[in-house]
């Protein structure tokens, strides 16, 4: 059984933990961090709460990575971690790491993976605002992309 390429966690994500596993054949490593920002559509955000479907988020996330390797055969290694639970401003919510011999496919695959994760993996975001309200946000504009 191949190692898991996608995982869910409730702990803080530490990029260096994943970056220590890059093979020496790789000349290009692209890292994407999705972080909690302090604003959304003009409203001041205080924190986020992510929730996930416990089974499907892992299996669909893993499938995204399998699809990525099939689509970008030059990629040597691809990993992604998504955190759920409470996040404070600046926290990393998702991390994607792609390594390959050369940079071009690493950039391309990394972009593809984060877009696929957003579209396909059952994770939801509840934003809490300065004014005391909260709202489930994220995907109103891309309903037809599913």
């Amino acid at each position: 059984m191949p190692p898991t390429m996608f995982s869910l966690t409730t702990s803080p994500i530490i990029p260096s933990d994943l970056l220590s596993t890059i093979p020496e054949s790789c000349g290009g490593v692209v890292t994407f961090e999705g972080r909690v920002r302090n604003h959304h559509q003009g409203r001041e955000v205080l924190k986020l709460e992510y929730s996930a479907h416990p089974v499907l988020a892992e299996s669909e996330g893993e499938q995204v990575m399998v699809d990525a390797l099939a689509r970008f055969p030059e990629v040597t290694l691809a990993r992604a971690v998504h955190r759920h639970g409470t996040h404070n401003l600046g926290d990393i919510a998702v991390l994607v790491i792609v390594a390959s011999s050369h940079r071009a496919e690493a950039f391309e695959a990394c972009r593809w993976i984060i877009d696929e994760i957003k579209h396909r993996v059952p994770i939801w975001k509840n934003e809490f605002y300065r004014d005391g309200t909260s709202e489930w946000t994220g995907c109103e504009g891309c309903r037809h992309a599913h």
């Binding site: 998702v94 994760i117 957003k118 994770i123 939801w124 975001k125 489930w136 109103e140 309903r143 599913h146």
Partner: peptide
């Protein structure tokens, strides 16, 4: 059964 609204990870 589970009903899933549009995803919003990332």
């Amino acid at each position: 059964v589970a009903f899933l609204p549009p995803f919003a990870g990332g």
